[in-house]
């Protein structure tokens, strides 16, 4: 029982020296490169874990966002690094990755379910249908995508609040963890979180009704082709 599992050695990847602590250190100092490197790793890991489970997004505690991120943390960082600071930074990056994984998944769901030309529901109609089915429903997917668009707009004007939403909503982080990761007070996180929800909702209503943001013009509306293009690499797995 003392010998290590051979398959871990065989996979090669886990042996490659990957200086996570160094990356996290640089991350804390605000290095974009470090963030990118970490994002890539975490994204890959989360995607791998989430992929086999498409049909069971919901109802599976082993697939909790937090649990997933925790697993990824253990796998990539290991159990030795217990520093709270490192954890929350890691989690914050993971929240971004989680958002991406979810949005990928939502695009795929939409593409699979309707191929891109079903009637568009208003945000209000959409709201009524959210979160009811065991798997991600078409409405859920729509909602995630429109949220993603709105969040992009928030990022442009109020990046701190946007990061907070990412941490809280997609990363399942607590207020304290979010505050630690973003380097602001818990009161700020809590306030941003509430304000951002209302702001985002209003923005989503605008997007949904075909309007453009008042202050910023983006081509956030995506056409179905680009959705397909995005989900294409997935099918080759």
């Amino acid at each position: 029982m003392t010998d290590r599992p051979s398959h871990e050695k065989a996979s090669g990847q886990s042996q490659s020296p990957w200086d996570i602590t160094g990356i996290l250190d640089r991350l804390r100092e605000g290095s974009d490169a470090a963030e990118k490197a970490l994002f890539g790793r975490v994204y890959g890991e989360l995607r791998k874990r989430a992929r086999g489970q498409r049909r069971r997004w919901k109802g599976d505690p082993t697939l909790q966002t937090t649990a997933l991120v925790n697993e990824a943390y253990l796998k990539l960082v290991g159990q030795d690094d217990r520093s709270w600071k490192n954890r929350s930074h890691f989690f914050a990056v993971s929240a971004m990755a989680m958002r991406q994984v979810l949005i990928d998944h939502a695009r795929r769901t939409r593409a699979e379910k309707r191929g891109g030309d079903a009637p568009r529901l208003s945000l209000e109609a959409l709201r009524e249908k959210l979160g009811q089915e065991a798997a991600m429903s078409e409405e859920d997917a729509e909602a995630f995508l429109v949220l993603d668009d709105a969040l992009e707009r928030l990022e442009e004007t109020h990046p701190r609040a946007a990061r907070g939403v990412e941490c809280r909503f997609f990363g399942g982080m607590t207020i304290a963890e979010t505050a630690e990761a973003l380097g602001v007070s818990t009161a700020t996180v809590s306030r941003d979180w509430k304000q951002a929800k209302a702001w985002l909702y209003r923005e989503m209503q605008r997007i949904r009704s075909g309007g453009t943001p008042p202050d910023n013009d983006t081509d956030a509306e995506r056409n179905p082709e680009s959705d397909d293009a995005f989900s294409a690499p997935e099918s080759s797995f």
Partner: peptide
């Protein structure tokens, strides 16, 4: 509405 939206959408999240 926003709270309701996020509450419901959270139900569609993996957790």
């Amino acid at each position: 509405q926003a709270e309701e939206f996020f509450g419901r959408l959270a139900a569609a999240l993996p957790d």
